[in-house]
Design a protein around this nucleic acid. Sequence first.
DNA 1: TTGTTAATGAAAACTATTTTCATTAACAGA
DNA 2: TCTGTTAATGAAAATAGTTTTCATTAACAA
Lengths: 149, 149
Amino acid sequence: MRNDNWWCGRFRGCGYKVTVPREAILEVLSLTDKHLSAEDIYLAVHKKYPAIGLTTVYRTLDILVSIGLIYKFDFGDGRARFELAEDSKGKKHHHHLICTKCGRIIDYTDFIDDEFELLQLVEKGLSKKYNFKISGHLIQFCGLCDKCR
Amino acid sequence: MRNDNWWCGRFRGCGYKVTVPREAILEVLSLTDKHLSAEDIYLAVHKKYPAIGLTTVYRTLDILVSIGLIYKFDFGDGRARFELAEDSKGKKHHHHLICTKCGRIIDYTDFIDDEFELLQLVEKGLSKKYNFKISGHLIQFCGLCDKCR
DNA sequence: TTGTTAATGAAAACTATTTTCATTAACAGA
DNA sequence: TCTGTTAATGAAAATAGTTTTCATTAACAA
Ligand SMILES: [Mn+2]
Ligand SMILES: [Mn+2]
Ligand SMILES: [Zn+2]
Ligand SMILES: [Zn+2]
C-alpha cells in the first residue's frame, strides 16, 4: 500500500489498483484551476513521468469520470475537458461562462444558491413527471468575454 | 427566385444562396421532433436527393448554426446533434433531459418560466460582474429514464 | 516472495469532421 | 430569357480526437 492520498480509498473501493500513472494524473488535475484536455494532462504528466502514454491518460480519465472523481465537459472546441469534482478538496460546485470567440472559461459561483433552489424544484418535478432518476445537471452561459466583445 | 419558404429571406439576407441541398436539409429538420446527427440528416436527405453529399450537409449545418436557424448540441455520444431553433415555427424554447444509459433525449418545457426568470437574473448579474456579453444558455439534466432506471 | 490478473504503452484502427480541388448551379445584370 | 461571375457542391483525401489490440509489466493478495 504505497500511498495514502485521499483518493486511494475511493479508488480501491471500486476495485481499481493504485498506480503511478493514476496518481500522476490525479495530481495534475488537483494542482490546476484550468479545464484540461486529455492531451494537456498527458503533456503535464509527461514532464515528470515520460513513460506514461496518452492511451493510459484516456483510460484513467474514463475511470475517474465513472467513479465521480472528475467531471467531463464539452465546451465546443472539439476535445473533451476535465476538472476535479468538488466534494473532495476545497473545490466548490460552480457553473461555467464560455467565450464563444476565444474559448475562455470562467467558473462562477454567483447566484449558485438561487440556482440550486430552482434546480431542486425542477429536478423534483421532472423526475416525477417523466419518471426519471436525475443524477446531475449542466448549466452554462455562452457569449463574449470582456476582451472579445 | 425559386422558392419562398420562410427561411429564404434570412438565408439571402445573410448573403447565402438558396440551393436544393439547403432546402432539403432544412425540410428534414423541420419535419422531425428528434435530435438528428449530421449523418442522420444525410441519410434522410439522401432518400429524396441521392446526389447530395455528406460534406454539404456538414457545411450547411455550420451555416444554419451561425445564422441562428438551428441549434447544435453535444449529448455525449460522440457526434453533434441538431434541432431547429424555436423562433420560426411552432417550436417552443425548451431544455433537455438526457438518459445516460440509452441516450434518450426528452424535451421539456415544464418550469421553463421559473427557469427563465432565474436566467434573466443570473445573466444580468454575470454580464455585469464579468463584463460578458451573454448570448445564450444551456441547461440540461442527466440521469436514467423510466426504462433504464 | 510469488502468482494472478489488472494495468500499461506502442501501434494500429476507428470515426466524426474538415479540407482540397475540379465541376456545377444560383442569380444579378443585360 | 440569356449569360457571366462566383459561391456552392461532391468525391476523395486529410485531419484529429479517441478507442482498440496485443504483448509486456507491475500491483497486491496470499
Ligand atoms: Mn469549472
Ligand atoms: Mn430539443
Ligand atoms: Zn473571449
Ligand atoms: Zn434510458
